[in-house]
Nucleic acid binder design. Structure first.
Length: 276
DNA sequence: ATGACTCCTGAGAGGAGA
């Protein structure tokens, strides 16, 4: 029986691009890393086909919010943890959350798994759905949370030009449009959230997503659109945040790499919040 | 700039992703 350090939590966020197609790689990651919690995006899997049994064999319980056809988010919790609450709505809207937002409180932490709509392309300029969704995430982050909060997932927004391989090629695209970036700043400022990777690695690219075509990964034509946002009182407890390249390589990878976040002293953090 | 992807559904192409 493995024993785990209760004061240290490791959380992985991963856009798996189809949980069924990715199950061998997900199993590999869970066996090797044994994270406490996992936020998944793009499960692309109907409710009835979700691999609860296989995940159970691997020692994880899953909560799943399927999307209509694409999308879908899940949160996996290692079986030795007790889940204290769950939330299936985003800014009090159930329909907005379907397939795109899940929230679980566990081990003194409220964790959100988010999949922001990709939004506009160069051809298709209407981005109102994406902006409304980002607004709802901002509101959700502003709600009173008893526990410190970590929101992790695929935001489909690269916060700045430093987060994309060649800004001029992507000008005005879904990931770099000014309005999206403005809304992301709004989430960070109003929710008092910290972009964890950028906070710990001010000078690295930290790309998490590479197009599957044409050797983008080999050339490192990447985007940093998978983010972990921590409430400010949680941010000081984050000791590590890394892109796990091993799972973007090898056999049948997702187009995204997992992002791993390590927290220490989380119980202290919750206790201080209660005392305050 | 990328030459030439890969998932899903449903039974073959077509939509979607980013």
């Amino acid at each position: 029986m493995t024993t785990y350090d209760e004061r240290r939590l490791r959380i992985v966020s991963w856009n798996v691009n189809g949980i069924r197609a990715r199950m061998p790689r997900i199993a590999e990651m869970l066996r090797r890393e044994r994270p406490d919690m996992v936020c998944l995006q793009e499960t692309r899997c109907p409710f009835r086909h979700f691999p609860h049994k296989r995940l159970g064999e691997l020692g994880y319980r899953a909560q799943h919010s399927p999307g209509r056809r694409n999308g879908g988010v899940a949160i996996l919790v290692r079986s030795d943890h007790r889940i204290t609450s769950r939330c299936l709505s985003l800014d009090n809207q159930h329909d907005l959350a379907a397939g795109r937002w899940l929230e679980t409180t566990c081990a003194g932490l409220t964790l959100g798994s988010v999949y922001v709509p990709a939004g506009p392309t160069r051809q298709e300029l209407d981005d109102s759905g994406k902006l409304a969704f980002l607004e709802a995430v901002a509101n959700q982050a502003c709600h009173d949370h008893y526990h410190p909060m970590l929101i992790a997932g695929d935001f489909n927004v690269a916060p700045s030009d430093r987060d994309v391989y060649e800004p001029t090629w992507l000008e005005g695209s879904y990931a770099t449009a000014a309005a999206e970036r403005e809304d992301l700043r709004h989430i960070l400022n109003d929710g008092e959230l910290v972009d964890v990777y950028r906070h710990l690695h001010p000078d690295d690219h930290g790309y998490t997503c590479w197009d599957q075509r044409g050797g983008h990964y080999a050339r490192d034509y990447g985007l940093r659109i998978d983010l972990a946002l921590a409430s400010s009182r949680l941010a000081e407890h984050i000791t590590r945040c890394e892109v796990k390249h091993a799972y973007r390589q090898g056999r049948r990878p997702s187009n995204h790499a997992p992002l791993e976040i390590e927290l220490e002293g989380i119980r202290d953090c919750a206790e201080r919040a209660i005392a305050a």
